[in-house]
Simulated assay, not measured.
Amino acid sequence: MAAEKITAQQRTEFGKGAARRIRRDDKIPAVLYTHGDQPVHLTLPGHDTMLALKHGGANALLELDIDGKTQLGLTKQIQIDPITRHIEHVDFVLVKKGEKVTVDVPIHVVGDAAPETLVVTENSVVSVEAEATHIPEYFEISVEGAAIGTMLHASDLALPSGTTLLSDAELLIVNVTQQISEEALEAELEEAEADAGIEREESDEDAEAEAAAEGEADGDAEGSSEE
């Protein structure tokens, strides 16, 4: 994973007020945590940083140019506004080329399992150790043609050279089960609601069907009395 270069400015103003002023200028406040030293507070260009983080994925590696000195920052946390979806703050940890780091890497499930199956993703990330400049963006695991009962574990992942699995090798990633019918799912839901003491409100469709059935029954009864 190549590091994207971002020009950062070291800042001396802190607090919510300073952060709001930075964001108003279409910039992002950030902190670079170093090894044992004091953290470095930064201001990053908003648009370029957003693109770099989007391209780099969950463990984006950025080459931060801070006052002419280049530092490698591994993304550890991104705070995003839940309404505007704008990046509000980024935490980085300082890394060096050749250094091994521990990261969580997402898993992408690809392919189509056999007909009438349900593919359940039990765990969507695994923890690995990798060189800071060669962190996998994601791992792929295929369920193409997988039959009912197929279970894929962390040990089934194809890891690139230099990457070591830290998660339990038996960690279940994907479980392929029997696809449940709509009728069976509805029956299970009704049973669970009954066990929990939940009374389901009658739907308009059920009410209409019940009324129609009662009407037919009344009609049959009248016909029998006339006879």
Results as ranks from 00 to 15, higher is better:
E190D: 15
V110R: 12
R24F: 09
A211D: 00
L152W: 00
E199M: 12
V120Q: 15
D195N: 15
T12Q: 08
A146C: 09
F14D: 08
P39F: 06
M1L: 14
I135V: 12
V109I: 12
L152K: 05
T70E: 02
H153N: 11
E193N: 13
P106F: 02
E202S: 11
E186N: 10
I83S: 01
L62A: 06
G57T: 04
I66R: 10
F92D: 03
E13P: 03
T12A: 12
Q71D: 06
E190F: 02
A3R: 01
E210K: 15
A114H: 08
A187T: 14
L152V: 03
V103H: 01
I6P: 03
L159Q: 03
A146T: 00
A114V: 08
L159I: 02
D112W: 12
G197K: 10
L72Q: 00
A187L: 13
L172M: 12
F139E: 02
G68N: 07
A212Q: 14
A18K: 03
I107K: 01
A147D: 11
T7Q: 15
E208R: 14
G57N: 05
V128T: 03
D65P: 05
A207N: 07
E129T: 06
L165Q: 06
V31E: 02
E116L: 10
P115L: 14
D218G: 05
A147M: 08
T121V: 14
M50I: 10
G17F: 04
G68M: 08
D37H: 07
D204H: 08
L53G: 01
I173L: 15
E131V: 04
E63N: 09
A113G: 09
L42Y: 03
D65A: 11
V109D: 09
S225I: 13
E208Y: 07
P39W: 05
